[in-house]
Design a protein around this nucleic acid. Structure first.
Lengths: 230, 230
DNA sequence: ACCATATTCTAAAGATCATTAGACTACTGT
DNA sequence: ACAGTAGTCTAATGATCTTTAGAATATGGT
């Protein structure tokens, strides 16, 4: 009877396919690429720069992600722009990261040492922040690059890429509390901003989550360049 | 300034940790082990038999899962029993499998060819099935091994390991519809049972999902040996 | 048409992984 | 104490993966 063999073959084939997704997310580099892409479509060049990989290496990793159908390329002019194949990829990324944080003490330790070890910067609760934004009680700064901001940001936030922060500091109202956010819990931009702002006498806190976490939580999202110019 | 370097180091460390989970689920064998463990605690011996791996190889894969903190061993007498470290591991497994089914046409093709290509066996809807069970309109057969049944099963289901099906066939009431389930969509037990039952003149359908999917959907679960003896 | 740029493809190096064999540990039964 | 069983650990094999270099392709600007 071939049933046992055949059943085994089918199981191997099916689990083998599922493992393709597993392989795609088994490299730190590819995880970082996925996370960056969750902030919007990006060219290979941009991705390589943001991950500090060579273009060739970034391209090779993107190929693996592409073959696992997690990302899709779009060619425009000289550039190839990659984006997540569906929303569900970002959701899955977050659930993988959550599981890792829950299961692996090492993750908590590293992030505690690096992020928790500095000055107290209470992470702000999301819902609470939203109502305070709507009440106009707080200035929200988005420290990511302009294209990331344009692809989606917290409603009412102001685009202020970290490089421009020092220059543009004076335009931030001093009388209001400032909340800074960036790419998420593993990103240091908001940390640096809060340190600078605090040093200059602002009341500044860091939103522990980034835009991806905000959007995945089903909270409202604003698109386009609003707030970028003023 | 060391900020850039340091930030990169931290990112690598954190994504490297997350990738540990990714590596753990990047092998077909480990995925199958995880899925089996979602049906309850099992010894290395049982796991090796069910996956058709050698004990040594199964042990090596379990070690990887253990090092990723996805499973935990418990030693009792001569045997080492492994179980999932938390419920969330099963949930994560299901979300990975769902993503794979959504993204990879190959998964759909293989399962279509193998499961869809046979006689029509409409998968039964879960909620609907539950109300029909409660109304006593349907006989539900659990074809998994006895220990798996004891660890948790659909309420009112009857334990009937596939090996005993032919012997015990006559004890199944002929006037009621029969619904069979097993380990889930990649498992052939319910398929075989439905073929046999249909050949014997029963009205039999297959529940496409297995116990893990049922439990993850938040539906009620029954434990112990009830129904196993009669 | 020609050159520069962005990216991929191919190939090759070293690193890591899967699998198995052999030695070893721990427990059970006699 | 002794033998037998279950499982792990170590080491070795071949297979696969990561990274980089070099060649190839495609696009846009001149």
């Amino acid at each position: 009877m071939t049933a046992a063999l055949s059943s085994r073959t089918v199981k191997n084939a099916l689990y083998g396919q599922v493992a393709r997704i597993g392989k795609a997310v088994s490299s730190p580099q590819r995880l970082e690429l996925l996370h960056l892409l969750a902030h919007g479509e990006k060219s290979v060049e941009t991705l390589a720069a943001q991950t500090q990989l060579t273009i060739k290496n970034a391209s090779a990793h993107l190929r693996v992600l592409r073959e696992a159908r997690l990302v899709e390329p779009r060619k425009e002019g000289q550039h190839v722009y990659y984006r997540l194949a569906e929303e569900g990829v970002a959701t899955f990324f977050l659930s993988l990261r959550d599981l890792a944080e829950r299961r692996l003490a090492e993750v908590r330790e590293v992030s505690q040492q690096y992020f928790g070890g500095r000055k107290q910067m209470t992470p702000v609760d999301r819902r609470q922040l939203l109502s305070r934004i709507r009440a106009g009680e707080v200035t929200v700064l988005d420290l990511r690059d302009e294209p990331e901001f344009a692809a989606g940001h917290i409603p009412g936030a102001r685009s202020l890429p970290i490089r421009e922060l020092k220059k543009t500091l004076r335009s931030i109202p001093r009388d209001q509390e400032v909340v800074a956010y960036c790419h998420g819990p593993y990103c240091v931009l908001s940390l640096e901003a809060v340190q600078l702002l605090t040093a200059k006498g602002y009341r500044a806190t860091r939103l522990d989550d980034g835009f991806v976490e905000w959007a995945a939580a089903g909270l409202p999202v604003e698109r386009g360049r609003t707030g970028a110019s003023r």
